[in-house]
Design a protein around this nucleic acid. Structure first.
Lengths: 147, 147
DNA sequence: TAGAATGTTGCTTGTAATAGTCAACAATTC
DNA sequence: GAATTGTTGACTATTACAAGCAACATTCTA
């Protein structure tokens, strides 16, 4: 039940873009450094994100990548779909033909509920939520210091 | 985000035991056949389930395995824990030391919520729930035929 | 008490997915 | 036109998973 590094790294890369929204294209090099991702690996992660319309790229000097839409319009479910493929814990959820037992299998029903629970979280979270979470962490409530 | 076959097969094997509760020890051979699991593979799956106190085994002729507790007392979370290990989608949830960014990482918070969602389903489902689901499927409401 | 039936365990192997690197290429700016 | 950047494809570990095989331990029954 592990998320691939593709999804984890990709999400962090997008968060970086969201945090630096308005700065224009950001170098892959900078994202890789900031988020501690190997550059050649990151290069591969952006391809599906571009194809999926989540980011835009600019070539040449002063090039880089940037979000194609506002952070509040980009749900995590979209990111995982592009980088992880389906989030179904077993193949037979998306493709009942994958197993001859599908129609009568009770365990399959549980795994289906599992997928729904996962989807619920991913559908309900946007990049903007991550940005706000980040701000909250880096600027903790000052009242804390008065306790 | 896939469940291992260990968990899938193991759950089905336990369901089989729950369905045949009261019959005494069931042959591994029979479970393997009924649930279409390779016998040598199934043999390996039962070890952790015995160690975890979910099933009991009886050696020798007329031996086999059976549930160590009532189906309503066996939660799926317990089964996945024994067969899958943790259900956390990333290592840093259970072990913050796995990544130096843990304390400041916002994406980690999302993956934590993912784990909670998954745990919620698994904690809230028992083997007895599967048994009842199975009964419902094999004995569909007769009124269906009068439509 | 012997031997057959069953679960138990450890060793080994095949396979596939993942993670990652390297290098050639394309486009853009200055 | 040369430097800088993203793009793509080929390639290579590495790892985890799934599975098989064989020797072993235990128990029942004849």
């Amino acid at each position: 039940m592990k998320l691939s590094t593709r999804t984890r790294y990709g999400t962090r890369a997008l968060l970086e873009l969201a945090l630096r929204k308005g700065e224009g294209p950001i170098f892959l090099k900078d994202i890789a450094k900031q988020q501690e991702i190997s550059l050649p690996y990151l290069e591969h992660l952006i391809a599906p994100l571009i194809a999926g319309g989540v980011i835009r790229s600019t070539k040449g000097p002063k090039g880089g990548i940037s979000l194609a839409r506002n952070p509040e319009e980009i749900k995590l479910s979209e990111i995982t779909q592009l980088l992880e493929g389906t989030v179904a814990p077993v193949e037979c959820i998306d493709d009942p033909g994958a197993c001859s037992r599908s129609s009568s299998c009770v365990t399959r029903d549980v795994w289906a509920r599992l997928k729904e629970a996962i989807d619920g979280v991913l559908e309900g979270t946007t990049l903007q939520d991550l940005v706000e979470g980040h701000k909250k962490k880096s600027q903790p409530d000052k009242t804390m210091y008065y306790i």
